[in-house]
Simulated assay, not measured.
Amino acid sequence: MVFRPKIDTFFVHFIMIIVFLLWLVSFWPLIIFSGIVLVEFLLLLSVFVIGVSIISWSAFQINYEFYPDYLLVKGGPFVSRIPYDKITSVTLSNNIFSGYRVLSSRDAIEIFYKHALWGSVTIAPDYKKEFLHELTKRCPHAEMRV
Rank of each mutant, 00 (worst) to 15 (best):
Y64E: 02
H133A: 09
D8Y: 05
F66P: 02
Y70L: 07
K137C: 08
A116N: 06
G35T: 15
V12N: 06
P77R: 04
Y67M: 06
V102E: 00
K137L: 11
S105M: 02
W23M: 14
R138H: 06
Y113N: 02
I96C: 02
P29T: 02
L45N: 12
I32N: 03
A124E: 11
L132D: 03
S34P: 07
W57E: 14
I87N: 02
S46P: 05
G35E: 13
S46E: 05
I87D: 00
F20I: 08
S46I: 07
V146A: 09
F60Q: 01
I50P: 06
I18Q: 03
T9C: 13
S26N: 04
P83T: 04
C139Q: 06
W28L: 14
F97I: 03
H141T: 00
G99W: 03
N63Q: 11
F27A: 05
F33S: 14
H133W: 12
G35D: 13
D107N: 15
I17V: 14
C139V: 04
F14N: 11
P77C: 08
V12Y: 03
Y70S: 07
K6Q: 05
S80F: 07
T88C: 03
F27G: 05
F97L: 14
L30N: 13
L43K: 06
H13G: 11
T122K: 05
L117G: 15
I50N: 12
Y127W: 11
S93I: 01
A116E: 04
K86S: 03
F11K: 02
F14T: 09
F66V: 01
T122R: 00
L92Q: 14
L117Y: 15
I54A: 09
S105N: 08
F48Q: 02
I18V: 07
R4P: 01
H13R: 15
F33P: 07
R101T: 01
Y64C: 00
W23H: 10
T9D: 12
I32H: 11
N63Y: 05
L44V: 04
T9A: 14
V2R: 09
K86D: 14
S93T: 02
P140D: 03
I36M: 06
L135D: 02
P125S: 00
W28H: 14
Y67L: 15
P68C: 04
I82V: 09
F112Y: 08
F112K: 10
F20C: 07
I109K: 01
L24N: 08
L38R: 13
D85H: 12
F10G: 14
P68Y: 00
P68A: 05
N95T: 12
V12T: 12
Y70K: 09
H141M: 07
L38G: 10
T91D: 08
D126Y: 12
I87M: 01
S46M: 11
S26A: 10
S93L: 00
V102H: 00
I54D: 05
H133E: 15
I36K: 11
I32L: 12
S46T: 09
L132T: 01
T91V: 13
I96E: 07
H133C: 15
L38I: 15
H133R: 10
W57R: 10
M1W: 03
M16C: 15
I111C: 02
F3E: 01
V12R: 02
K137H: 11
S53V: 04
I111Q: 00
L103D: 01
L135M: 01
I15N: 05
L71F: 03
A116R: 06
D69C: 06
F112H: 09
L92G: 12
S58P: 05
L72A: 14
